[in-house]
Amino acid sequence: MQPQIEAFFDDATGTVSYVVFDQPGGHCAVVDSVLDYDPKSGRTRPQSADRIVAFVQRQALTVQWILETHAHADHLSAAHYLRGKLGGKIAIGASITQVQKVFNKVFHLEPGFHPDGSQFDHLLHDNDVFDIGQLKARALAVPGHTPACMAYQVGDAVFVGDTLFMPDVGTARCDFPGGSAHTLYQSVRRLLALPPETRLFMCHDYPPDGRTPTWMCTVADQRERNIHVRDGVSEEAFVELRTRRDAGLDMPVLILPAVQVNIRAGAMPPPEDNGVRYLKVPLNTL
Rank of each mutant, 00 (worst) to 15 (best):
L194K: 08
V259Y: 00
G275H: 12
D128W: 05
Q186C: 07
V169W: 07
Q186A: 15
P3K: 06
S187E: 03
P143D: 08
K89S: 13
I263M: 05
Q98T: 14
V20W: 00
Q59D: 06
Q2L: 13
V259H: 00
R244M: 11
H70P: 06
S180V: 05
V19R: 01
F107V: 09
F21D: 01
A265Y: 01
P39R: 13
E240T: 14
P257F: 10
P208H: 07
L123S: 08
L283G: 09
G232M: 10
R83K: 15
P257N: 14
V142G: 00
P213D: 02
F165R: 02
G88F: 00
P195R: 07
S48T: 15
A78M: 03
V281H: 09
S77N: 06
V276G: 08
G112C: 08
P24W: 06
Q119K: 08
L200V: 08
I92T: 06
F21L: 10
D36W: 05
L254F: 11
P143S: 12
I263Y: 00
T62S: 13
Q59P: 03
L61W: 02
V106P: 01
C28K: 02
I92S: 03
I92D: 00
Q64L: 11
S17F: 01
V34S: 03
L140G: 02
G112P: 02
A193E: 09
D231N: 10
A79K: 01
L76D: 00
H27G: 07
E197G: 05
R225T: 09
V169R: 09
H108T: 13
L279P: 04
T243L: 05
R264F: 07
D221M: 11
L249S: 10
R264I: 09
V169H: 07
R190Q: 12
D10W: 05
I132N: 00
G84M: 04
R245K: 09
R244Y: 14
Q134R: 11
Q23T: 10
D131T: 13
L109I: 07
V160K: 03
G170F: 04
T243H: 02
E68C: 15
M1E: 09
L194Y: 06
S77P: 05
R199P: 03
A12E: 07
F176H: 11
V281R: 15
Q260S: 10
F103G: 01
H72N: 11
D131Q: 14
M202Y: 05
K136C: 11
V16E: 02
T198R: 06
S41K: 11
H27I: 09
D11H: 12
H70S: 14
A137G: 04
R277L: 08
V34D: 00
I92G: 00
P282K: 09
E240M: 13
F8V: 03
P195M: 12
K280L: 15
N284D: 13
A157Y: 01
I5W: 06
Q260P: 07
D168V: 08
D221P: 05
Q57H: 14
V261R: 02
F130H: 02
A49T: 04
S33F: 01
E272G: 11
Q47P: 06
P46S: 15
K40H: 13
K89L: 15
V169S: 11
A73T: 13
T171N: 06
G25Q: 10
D209E: 15
L164D: 07
Q98R: 15
L124W: 04
E240I: 08
P208K: 08
K101D: 15
